[in-house]
Design a binder for these strands. Structure first.
Length: 928
RNA sequence: GGGCCUAUAGCUCAGAUGCGGUUAGAGCGCACGCCUGAUAAGCGUGAGGUCGGAAGUUCAACUCUUCCUAGGCCCA
């Protein structure tokens, strides 16, 4: 007879092979169809809300692993918060304006752009953004991220654009916006401002000149060593045309500077560059007459080499010893660092160059000259006045316009700034930083340093694709018109027509009727041409989204982005909210690191180590990507490699298979009819429930603290160690052999049902697809989606400390026994553990605890016979390691192997009708 | 160059309430073996770490300090 047919073997149609890349889309379709996100909102109704406000990705290009990571993290937080009893709302968003899109559109339009109006260009930009929003939306949804995808927020939506202008109005009305000059890249042939990204570097031949700035006589007199001869500070520059705008010379605060007597005069250079300079000048005879610390020179005044003006010595860390003299010519209107120095020292941002790249009228000698032509004239002038030491040419990398390929210049123009000091913005922001929870905590330090040191926020951009700075200037007197009434009027227009209206209508048409200049009463106005920095767009999302949608609220519970956003969205949002609302827009900020390759290097095309999310989804499924996000500790950089993915997919299989085994053994189980009450369960089953409480506690606390890698490890470890290698392995005997409806089997099934239900709920935020798939195979009644469930609660009634103690001992003994069995296997005494009889001698304390539990131990060790003996009765045996003092001897089990349960027993052969069965199996098959 | 951060077995992570104390742990992977009634599954045993490197503080440091190296983000 084939006794296998009399066993209760696991049975389930839940497939072992996940086939994720095929199955996931089906699950997604089901979620779409059932409108799962709406159901979640319905479920959350009346609960406390949890608002994770989405930082908008830029609507350009496909998603990459970084954006995937970010969205999956958000999804795991939202799902776990929802399942923890909150109403976790998620409104995704997109950042739509800005240069990169305009740049792409520029490329697509090519020459056609020249003949197009700003409004037409903007239309193209809008269409471009829409296209990628659709693409990215699909890609994000494919990851299993649930949210309000049909109604996301877009920074280019009309109401959003209106909101941006409204927020800007708030800054203006409080006097927080100021106008001042700042140098930008300028292409004089295109007559346009260029952004960093629009500048290309090519080799360019420039003059290279060394120039003397004579020290003022009275300053020189302070140093007797210098007083004897004319003394000069030497500078080196490759842009002679910027010399008319020179206002200072920058020295490095830590460098030593020397005064050298070169015969007729004394020159001052950095000590570290003295030799190379003298070599360049071909001067062999020179003597150092004095060495200065840079700080001693600070504040000294030089004469401009050819203008009636001073040039002051200042200190700046950007000075290097790579080339030149260590004394850096500083023209605040023509260089980034020069400008920073001007801010620090209160120098004028002087930039006497017009849109065509020509010197303005107030430049002596060179007025009207094109700056690149002026180079040689400036040099000639220097030679004429005897200030030129050396003139050469140099080929170096120099910024060029990406469009016309001409060299560009740095030129200061009028820009709008949000002042860090008006209304105590800096101070208030620093105060609010203290009141936000930063996860990890070092985020606070990072953003605090940035806010403490940042200059005023330049919100002007000379571009097309964005929201205009909606202010006017009186043509009559130049007075600014930026009153709340004017803003309100424009905001109302934006609500209806979008920001495009600004470019379609004239200033007069954009103004409320009767608008007049507050200064001269004039009514003729010019509208501002600059558009807003896109960081202002996204930075005010709390106003456009949290405050506008009735089901959301300000401030958000959390903002969650990569660590680069300390300078980006966290930063701009904080400044904007503190500046207009007097408080931070978020209660907590969570940051994650960046995706790097297996060696910790960043992903780059040149290194060839880039992995696209799509590749992983196709090969393994989005679920593995999600598991990856969970498994890695995101506070640090996040590594990914083929090896890591392979390892994760193996771990996934293990979790899936364990789930499958659980379901398979619940095949004939109906929780409502068959569940066994706790008090009537086998003690092993009660112990398993105790262990389950540990798991619930561990995982829930990990979710609470956003430590998903702990969730992953706990989940995996539980499946492998507690279930597969222990509980389930032991249970097989009881589940398979006992009669189907027996209490001992139902006891086990009751617990298996508890376990698998809890397991699926606990894994749902991470393994969203698999949990959902398996959920449908659960016996009994259940909700329509695992995501609509709440996490299991840790139940103290299912804990039993005493039982736990006892089983910790049994576990320890079991470990010693398997070591003994392994030894016996090596020496070919046994093969399968059921071939064995285990004789155990226990130390006194344990002996008492386990006395009479032979049958229990037999099942736990999965052997055929167990006998407890005194040490003296054992001839040989293995010493216990886990249970010190224990001794374990393995021998061949007595009796024959039962054909049905495979346990060796002396009762086999004693039954006529079941000659190959043991008494247990005989009784099961022949119930009384 | 500056700010912030990271560096524990091949991989992913633990190393008690942020201020040190017995032979540094887990899972995976690997090796070897068992099983063939979770089977493109399951079980067991075992080998793997001078805790990035070097100084220092201390009776005592993976845990504190400094420097260095490598890597990441931001800025210059």
């Amino acid at each position: 007879m084939d006794y296998k047919k009399t066993l209760n073997l696991p049975q389930t149609s839940f497939p072992m092979k996940a086939n994720l890349s095929k199955r996931e889309p089906e699950i997604l379709a089901k979620w779409d169809e059932s409108r799962l996100y709406d159901l979640l909102r319905k479920r959350g109704k009346g609960r406390q809300t949890y608002i994770l406000h989405d930082g908008p990705p830029y609507a350009n290009g496909h998603i990459h692993l970084g954006t995937a990571l970010n969205k999956i993290l958000k999804d795991m937080i939202i799902k776990s918060r929802q399942m923890s009893g909150l109403d976790a709302i998620y409104v995704p968003g997109w950042d739509c304006h800005g240069l990169p899109i305009e740049h792409q559109v520029d490329k697509e339009l090519g020459e056609r752009k020249q003949s197009m109006t700003q409004v037409e260009i903007r239309r193209h930009c809008r269409r471009y953004a829409e296209r990628f929003i659709d693409i990215q939306r699909q890609e994000f949804k494919r990851l299993g991220v649930l949210g309000e995808w049909e109604n996301p927020y877009l920074t280019m939506a009309y109401p959003y654009e209106a909101s941006i202008a409204r927020e800007l109005g708030r800054f203006f009305s409080r006097g927080g916006v100021i106008r001042s000059k700042k140098p930008i890249y300028w292409c004089s042939s295109c007559q346009t401002a260029l952004a960093e990204a629009e500048v290309e570097y090519h080799d360019h031949v420039s003059p290279s000149i060394y120039v003397k700035f004579p020290l003022q006589a009275e300053e020189q007199a302070r140093y007797p060593e210098l007083a004897v001869k004319p003394a000069s500070v030497l500078i080196w520059t490759t842009t002679p045309w910027t010399l008319p705008a020179n206002l200072a010379i920058t020295l490095h605060p830590d460098f030593a500077y020397v005064a050298v007597d070169v015969g007729g005069e004394i020159w001052i250079v950095a000590e570290g560059l003295l030799e190379s300079c003298m070599k360049a000048f071909a001067i062999q005879d020179y003597t150092v007459v004095k060495t200065f610390q840079a700080s001693h020179l600070q504040g000294l005044k030089c004469r401009h080499p050819f203008l009636e003006r001073d040039s002051v010595l200042i200190l700046g860390g950007h000075v290097t010893l790579e080339a030149g003299t260590g004394c850096v010519h500083t023209a605040p209107g023509h260089g980034r660092e020069d400008y920073d120095m001007a801010l620090e020292y209160g120098l004028d941002v002087y930039s006497p160059v017009d849109d065509n790249g020509r010197f303005t009228r107030d430049v002596d000698f060179f007025a009207g000259q094109y700056v690149f032509d002026a180079n040689r004239n400036v040099t000639a002038k220097l030679k004429e006045v005897g200030r030129l030491i050396l003139e050469k040419e140099i080929s170096h990398s120099y910024p060029h316009c990406w469009r016309c390929k001409q060299p560009v210049i740095f030129r200061a123009t009028e820009q709008w700034f949000i002042s860090m000091d008006k209304n105590d913005l800096r101070k208030n922001t620093l105060d609010w930083i203290e009141r936000v929870e930063w996860i990890p905590s070092w985020g606070k330090e990072r953003i605090r340093n940035m806010i403490a040191n940042r200059p005023d926020w330049c919100i002007s951009r000379q571009r097309s694709w964005g929201v205009p700075i909606t202010v006017f200037t009186c043509k009559g007197c130049g007075e600014l018109l930026a009153t709340p009434e004017v803003f309100d009027h424009v905001v109302a227009l934006f609500e209806k027509e979008g920001a495009d209206i600004w470019f379609e209508l004239t200033a007069q048409e954009l103004l409320p009727p009767g608008a007049a200049c507050t200064n001269c009463g004039g009514s003729d106005f010019e509208k501002e041409k600059d558009i807003l920095d896109v960081w202002f767009d996204s930075g005010t999302s709390y106003a456009a989204v949290l405050e506008q949608r009735p089901y959301l609220s300000f401030p958000a519970d959390m903002y969650l982005e990569g660590s680069d956003q300390h300078r980006g969205w966290f930063h701009s949002s904080l400044l904007a909210a503190v500046g207009t609302r007097g408080m931070a827009p978020y209660r907590s900020v969570l940051t994650h690191g960046f995706v790097v390759d297996g060696q910790g290097y960043k992903m780059s095309k040149s290194l060839g180590n880039v992995i696209a999310p799509g590749e992983i989804i196709d090969k393994y499924g989005a679920e593995i990507l999600r598991l990856w996000v969970a498994a890695e500790d995101y506070r640090d950089d996040i590594r990914i490699s083929p090896d890591i993915l392979k390892r994760l997919s193996e771990a996934y299989r293990r979790i899936r298979n364990t789930t499958r085994f659980l379901l398979g053994n619940l095949n004939d189980f109906d929780p409502h009819r068959h569940a066994v009450p706790y008090e009537q369960m086998e003690e092993l089953d009660r112990f398993a429930l105790h262990q389950l409480q540990d798991l619930v506690k561990k995982i829930r606390s990990a979710y609470d603290r956003f430590e998903f890698h702990r969730v992953y490890h706990a989940l995996h470890n539980y499946c492998v160690v507690d279930l597969s290698a222990f509980y389930l392995d032991i249970l097989k005997d009881r589940l398979y052999i006992s009669s189907a409806a027996s209490k001992v089997r139902r006891s086990a099934q009751t617990v298996l049902y508890e376990i698998v239900t809890a397991l699926l709920k606990l894994m749902a935020p991470v393994l969203s697809f698999t949990a959902e798939e398996a959920w449908l195979y659960l016996p009994g009644s259940r909700g329509e989606s695992v995501h609509l469930e709440d996490f299991p609660e840790e139940n103290p009634a299912l804990r039993d400390a005493e039982l736990n103690d006892r089983w910790q001992t049994i576990l320890a003994l079991r470990s010693d026994v398997s070591r003994a069995l392994e030894a016996a296997r090596q020496t070919k005494i046994i093969g399968h553990p059921l071939d064995a009889k285990v004789s155990v001698a226990l130390p006194e304390s344990v002996q008492q605890m386990l006395n009479g539990s032979e049958e229990l131990l037999r099942s736990v060790f999965i052997v055929s016979q167990v006998e407890l003996r005194s040490a003296a009765e054992l001839s040989g045996g293995v010493e216990g390691v886990e249970v010190v003092g224990a001794k374990i001897e393995v021998s061949v089990a007595t009796g024959e192997k039962c054909e049905r349960c495979w346990v060796h027993s002396e009762s086999v052969g004693t039954f006529k009708e079941d000659a190959t069965l043991c008494d247990r199996c005989h009784n099961i098959l022949n119930p009384a």
